[in-house]
């Protein structure tokens, strides 16, 4: 088991190398002048572009530029983010908690609701429960996320003034900034920091802002997970061991939960793991519509402004998340499926 984990972590190095070469190569297709121009803000500075190109060696051969970048990254310097106006590493720690906060609430909900609804739909096949969840899934999956988010925002915030967008209300945010002695940002997540500092009203305020983003995320992601769970349940319920259990005298609950669901969960773990990993880099639509400055928001703005250090770092981060999530999925597999042994 340990050997397996170590082997998979070594594999991470290759993944990171591959991802970085790919993104680096992609960015190298822009001309050196174009890349330098990103850092120029006034017309007067435009004449400095050739100087910048020369100063930062943007005309050097690509491998040399890549080697230079790797050296800097290895020493902990991920570059400067224009969008955040901060070093990338520092900016990461201010954006990532926002995304993490959303996912800490949304992911368990997605998994629980998805598995529960999928099981229900599979057990009550072709009844109104099945049809209802199917319609819900089609709507949730086919409507664009941003549209869904906008509709929710319009209904709840627009008409009723509930659940405002943003991360936290401006009053609270001001109070937090003005009272650093009373409120320490341990995690960067207002909900958790509120509890840790004993100011539950901050947590309450942050939760109010989280309702709609979490709801959007859950509805969109649950739709897929639920369908996978349903088809898994249907497949398992038609297996022979279900008849064996029935012939033993098992009741419907034992058959559905103890026998069929345990088997149906195996493929669902993969999908659920991937979905959670995917949402860790932030849903762009959710974060932009609800103006939450998280990973997705950062990535979207960096991409439009050609903020190259950010694009590189975020892509590397995505690579790390995917390798780690696959590793966790594999370990969970070994726990739930006795036929699998990691070696």
């Amino acid at each position: 088991m340990t050997a397996y984990i170590i082997r998979r972590l070594l594999f991470l190095i290759f993944v990171l190398f591959g991802v970085s070469v790919l993104i680096f190569g992609l960015l190298m297709t822009f001309s050196p002048e174009r890349r330098a121009a990103v850092y120029v803000t006034t017309p007067q500075q435009a004449k400095d572009i050739p100087k910048l190109v020369k100063q930062y060696g943007l005309n050097d051969p690509v491998p040399i530029q890549y080697a230079r970048w790797v050296k800097e990254v290895a020493s902990g310097n991920l570059g400067w983010s224009l969008v955040a106006a901060r070093p990338v590493a520092k900016a990461f720690w201010s954006y990532f908690p926002t995304t993490l906060e959303l996912n800490l609430l949304a992911s368990p909900l997605v998994i629980i609701v998805g598995i529960w609804l999928g099981t229900l739909a599979g057990v009550h096949r072709d009844t109104w429960i099945d049809h209802g969840t199917r319609i819900g899934a089609i709507v949730g999956w086919s409507l664009p996320t941003f549209l869904f988010a906008l509709v929710l925002l319009m209904i709840f915030y627009g008409y009723y003034g509930l659940f405002p967008p943003g991360i936290i209300s401006s009053d609270t945010s001001l109070w937090v900034i003005n009272n650093p002695d009373k409120f320490t940002r341990y995690t960067g997540m207002y909900t958790i920091d509120g509890i840790l500092n004993g100011h539950l009203w901050v947590t309450w305020d942050a939760l109010n802002h989280l309702v709609l983003p979490v709801l959007t995320q859950v509805i969109v992601v649950v739709a897929l997970l639920m369908r996978v769970m349903r088809s898994g349940m249907l497949e398992e319920l038609s297996r022979d061991y279900v008849i064996t259990a029935k012939a033993k005298g098992a009741d419907a609950h034992t058959i559905n939960i103890k026998h069929a669901r345990k088997n149906a969960l195996i493929p669902v773990i993969t999908v659920a793991g991937q979905l959670v990993a995917l949402s860790m880099e932030g849903s762009i639509a959710v974060e932009v519509v609800f103006s939450r400055q998280g990973m997705g928001w950062w990535l979207a703005h960096s991409a439009t402004q050609l903020d190259m250090p950010v694009l590189m770092s975020v892509c590397m981060f995505i690579g790390v998340v995917f390798v780690l999530s696959n590793l966790i999925i594999d370990i969970m597999y070994a726990y739930i499926d006795p036929r699998i042994q990691l070696q």
């Binding site: 061991y241 012939a247 033993k248 005298g249 088997n263 499926d337």
Partner: peptide
Amino acid sequence: GDRISMIFQEPNAALNPV
């Protein structure tokens, strides 16, 4: 399973793998 019980033909499929 108590008064009437049944032995199935395909032992590989008749047992729950997990």
